[in-house]
Amino acid sequence: MSYKTLDTSKTYLVTGAAGFIGYYLSKKLLERGCKVIGIDNINDYYDVKLKYDRLEKLKPFEKFVFVKGDISDKALIMDLFEKHKPNIVINLAAQAGVRYSIENPDVYIQSNIVGFFNILEACRHNSVDHLVYASSSSVYGSNKKVPFEESDFVDNPVSLYAATKKSNELMAHTYSHLYKIPATGLRFFTVYGPMGRPDMAYFGFTNKYFEGEPIKIFNNGDFEHDLYRDFTYVDDIVEGIERLLNNPSVETVPHKVFNIGNNSPEKLMTFIGALEKALSNATKKEVSFNKVFEPLKPGDVPSTYASTDLLYEAIGFKPSTSIEEGLQKFADWYVSYYGIN
């Protein structure tokens, strides 16, 4: 397995640097001694305090430069590239969330389409070594064939969020074809961990428990056909990204797409049980959620399951953190961060 390790002499631009994955990736690159330019609009889609707390942890690094701004502002992005001349661009800025896209479609077009277009244009006019960008497992829609492989048909998205991510892959391919921009899209599968996104189910369940409220589970209470999810711990995601950064595609059209998932789907109810156990350990008392079962929501997909063969072939890595280990780290952080007990 031969792949180039991280080049610490290069300048890395991380969009969405105050976000969950953006923060962890920036931190890892800075710890390795890289120069990191971070940009984030710090929107209020979820608690901005969490975003500022992440940024606070990046501040001590001398090689970190933060710009508060929106990737949908083309002039700002062009100036940023002109001034800082990034060698490698990691676009993690996006409006996330499947259900939110049904009520607020405008922000998805602004951030995920217009914003990504601006990043592509900036890469076109400022020679970059590699553009790595976030796609999503949601592009697979309600694909029945498992595990999901990168070569699967993905033209039936079931949410606007998924449609914007599929669009990103098409746009990146076009720019790679026309302007030879080396680009790599990453289809993330349900990323979780400490300092994660409060809109994600595991975080929401934990909030509800400590607020004394029941949790809603969208599977009709159908345990026979329970939802499966490929839950991927954030450190595994960051490791995969880091290994890919200096290994752009060398094909005629230098664009590639990889799944990054745990390759080991868990029943949603198994995951919830593991979360209860992790919180019980963290609080030193028995934690049991009050569960209410509801029908699947529009845009939700029944199951996700990543094939990680292509990723392994390229960089010799596949995620491996168990949900027990990952959720325990989340629970310990949550109890400490929110001052439980």
Rank of each mutant, 00 (worst) to 15 (best):
F189V: 02
I323N: 11
V132I: 12
S101D: 13
I102H: 06
S264D: 13
H225R: 10
D309I: 15
V154K: 14
V98Q: 10
L186I: 11
S264M: 08
F61A: 03
F20D: 15
Y334G: 15
F258Q: 13
Y305I: 07
F231H: 06
E62W: 01
H177S: 00
N341T: 11
E149D: 04
P319F: 11
N262A: 10
K10Q: 10
G185L: 06
I90L: 05
D230I: 06
S137K: 04
M200Q: 02
R229H: 07
T270F: 15
S264W: 04
P182R: 10
K28E: 03
P248Y: 08
I88W: 08
E286N: 15
N263F: 13
E276T: 15
E82C: 05
S101P: 14
G316R: 00
F210Y: 14
T252H: 02
N259F: 14
Y133K: 00
E31R: 03
K35I: 06
L170S: 12
I113T: 10
Y100M: 09
F293V: 13
V301H: 03
A282W: 11
S264F: 04
S159W: 05
K85E: 07
V107K: 10
Q328Y: 14
K329C: 01
C123A: 04
T8C: 09
F210I: 14
Y337T: 09
M1H: 05
A75V: 02
H173M: 00
T270D: 14
K284P: 00
S9P: 06
M200Y: 04
Y52A: 04
A96V: 12
A134W: 06
Y3F: 05
T15K: 10
P147A: 12
S138A: 12
I71E: 09
K74S: 09
L268I: 04
F188I: 13
I71M: 07
R229Y: 06
C34M: 03
S307L: 11
G212T: 11
V158T: 13
E103R: 15
V238R: 01
F64L: 03
K27G: 06
V234E: 12
N91S: 07
E239W: 12
I340A: 12
Y3A: 02
E286A: 14
G196V: 13
M171R: 02
L131M: 05
I217W: 07
Y133D: 00
I71Y: 09
A96L: 09
K83E: 11
K144V: 15
V14I: 11
A163R: 05
D235R: 01
N262W: 02
K285L: 09
L279S: 12
T308A: 02
V154H: 13
K165Y: 08
V292G: 00
T174S: 02
I119K: 07
R99E: 12
I102T: 08
V234T: 14
Y12S: 03
I181M: 09
P302Q: 04
A18D: 01
G22P: 05
